[in-house]
Amino acid sequence: MFAIVEIAGLQYKVEQDQKLFVNRLKGDKGSKVSFDKVLLTVNGSTTVGAPAVSGITVDAEILDHVKADKVIVFKKKRRKGYEKKNGHRQSLSQIVITGITGFDNDKKEKKAAPKAKKAAAAEPAATETTTDSNNAE
């Protein structure tokens, strides 16, 4: 089971007990956060949101606040004597996904059963028309 969730403006594929670095979040070490903008979930069947899946949340815990490696930005124009050097370190939060909550398997099974019946009924009709057209030629 996994989900694609939007955290601090970026999309991440998350699973239970996964550790990841995200843009700096508000909160102290050890505090719990939850994300309700879940874009897609896969739990036996795929559920795609438009734009988000309702009723599903991803719970996480902040492990630490760190800084990423330094990125050097160097600009130069040759033969002009122009050189500019800048550095940047992004502030990150390390989180661990504690759970994905809100799945209701009974509703999914009820919704999946009518679709399967419709698809099964449509397939034999499609094969009959193709065999008729092949015989006509």
Rank of each mutant, 00 (worst) to 15 (best):
A52V: 13
A136C: 01
K80I: 00
A113Q: 12
I56K: 00
V58A: 09
V96I: 15
Q16T: 03
K84M: 00
E123I: 10
K118T: 06
G44D: 15
T127L: 13
V42C: 08
A113L: 12
G81K: 03
P51Q: 10
S45F: 14
A3F: 05
T47P: 07
K26V: 04
T131A: 15
G102M: 05
K37N: 10
K84T: 01
E109S: 14
D132K: 05
K75A: 07
E83P: 01
E83R: 06
L92D: 04
V96L: 13
A3D: 11
Q90L: 12
T98W: 12
A121K: 10
V14S: 08
K67V: 14
A126C: 00
R24Y: 14
A68G: 11
L25E: 07
S91V: 00
N86V: 05
G87Q: 14
G102H: 03
T41N: 06
V38E: 02
I7C: 04
G9K: 04
V22I: 09
S93H: 06
G81Y: 06
A121F: 11
I56P: 01
D106A: 15
E109Q: 15
Y12D: 01
E6V: 04
L10H: 11
F35M: 06
S31R: 02
S31P: 00
Y12T: 01
G44C: 07
A125C: 02
D28A: 14
K75L: 02
A8R: 05
K29M: 14
V22T: 14
G27F: 07
V14A: 10
V42G: 03
V48P: 00
